[in-house]
């Protein structure tokens, strides 16, 4: 049984089909990049994984669970922007990740102390301890996204969803963020879905690259058919397939 399984998912708004027959199975700790043209439904797909939208038909389950009806702590998310709370300091943003599921959204006493300590550790990890008491508005775009990722990770979600997380960053910062994300991933073994426009980024970071496109196209009625996953690339080993086939199937080796 795969960790995340998407079975025969359809999505439509009114009578406009967005996605059709989407099937994909993802193992734990896989990094899935999702690419495709604008309007091909990749963000819709991510919103359904996030349970912000429910599929018209089909099931999305994490470890065999039911299709979720609303976002919950199983899913962490980082958007392109507005992912952190502007009225909380950097440190409070991290503590919020632990306290928001408590009554009144606050922690008290020792629980609070411990959360603060964990927040400080995370701040060090994401390199923001020097701005712990500042508000997000005074941070650069890259720092805000690092904070957003740190905040999402603090809640310890089962899957992490990234919606064009580095789309608004300049190229240099984007490369730094790639290194940051790869390091973080090596440490945590998190299952990640990332929507991106940048093919290089998709292949650099992802274990698999899913391409969304419309397999059928009606020129009279462009909304008739939806998009689906048209390619499912293995992006490990620099995108060259079967590099580790001997490890997987030792019987194939000549020796």
């Amino acid at each position: 049984m795969s960790f995340v399984s998407v079975t025969n998912v359809w999505q439509r708004y009114g009578n406009r089909s967005i996605l059709e027959r989407v099937n994909v199975a993802v193992d734990e700790a896989e990094f899935i990049s999702i690419v495709g043209a604008s309007g091909c439904g990749k963000s819709t797909f991510l919103r359904m994984l996030l349970a912000e939208e429910r599929p018209h038909k089909g099931d999305i389950s994490i470890e065999g669970g039911e299709t979720a009806v609303e976002p919950n702590r199983e899913r962490g998310v980082v958007f392109q922007k507005y992912s952190v709370f502007p009225h909380l300091t950097v440190r409070e943003n991290l503590i919020a990740a632990e306290s928001f599921d408590k009554p009144f959204g606050r922690l008290r006493g020792t629980a609070r102390k411990q959360a603060e300590q964990r927040a400080d550790t995370m701040l060090e990890r994401i390199g923001l301890n020097h701005v712990a008491q500042q508000y997000p508005a005074s941070l650069s775009g890259g720092m805000q996204q690092r904070l957003a990722i740190g905040q999402a990770m603090t809640a310890k979600p089962r899957i992490l969803l990234l919606d064009e997380p580095f789309g608004a960053l300049d190229p240099g910062t984007r490369l730094q963020m790639h290194d940051f994300l790869l390091e973080l991933r090596d440490e945590t073994n998190m299952t990640v879905f990332m929507v991106t426009h940048d093919l290089d980024e998709a292949f650099k970071l992802g274990d698999r690259v899913l391409v969304f496109d419309k397999p059928r196209w009606d020129p009279q009625d462009p909304g008739l058919f939806g998009a689906t996953i048209t390619y499912d690339f293995d992006a490990r080993n620099k995108g060259m397939p079967f590099q580790d086939i001997l490890d997987q199937y030792p019987s194939l080796s000549l020796g």
Binding site: F85, F100, A155
Partner: peptide, 12 residues
Amino acid sequence: EQIVKAQTLGAS
């Protein structure tokens, strides 16, 4: 995004 984010952090 903020409202969704809060939900993913478990906020009621």
